[in-house]
């Protein structure tokens, strides 16, 4: 059984605010959903069940970089706040 405190904890881990009413609804729904996916528990799987995929190298050689600044304008245009090409954010570490 999920509790509202647990769901509240998950919400804060996921950086989401959940209102009181929604918290209760999510908690109820969680029970139903977890009840359903709980059927995995009764599944008898051998340790070999999880197959390791065959490995192949998907890395490519570094090279052919795009010209510096090619995307700067397009990307900075999406910034909510900026100074020149710099993204403005709140201070991360406080001195207080």
């Amino acid at each position: 059984m999920a509790t509202t405190e647990e769901v509240q904890k998950l919400a804060s881990l996921a950086r989401i605010t959940v209102g009181e009413e929604e918290l209760e609804r999510f908690t109820r729904e969680f029970d139903t959903i977890l009840g359903y996916i709980g059927q995995l528990d009764s599944l008898a799987l051998s340790e070999k069940g999880e197959e390791r995929p065959a490995l192949r190298n998907v890395m490519r050689e570094d090279g052919e970089p795009h010209a510096t600044g090619k995307y700067t304008k397009k990307l900075t245009e999406q910034f909510p706040a900026r100074e020149g090409d710099a993204l403005v954010v709140k201070q991360v570490i406080s001195h207080e």
């Binding site: 769901v7 998950l10 989401i16 969680f30 996916i37 995995l40 528990d41 599944l43 069940g49």
Partner: peptide, 26 residues
């Protein structure tokens, strides 16, 4: 997002996520 956060959290990752991966292989 909440559900995903839950199944990946340390107390539950074996019961849910790893089990689901095994089921996927099977």
């Amino acid at each position: 997002i909440l559900l995903g956060t839950f199944v990946l959290s340390s107390g539950y990752i074996d019961a849910y996520y790893h089990k689901a991966r095994a089921a996927r292989g099977a």
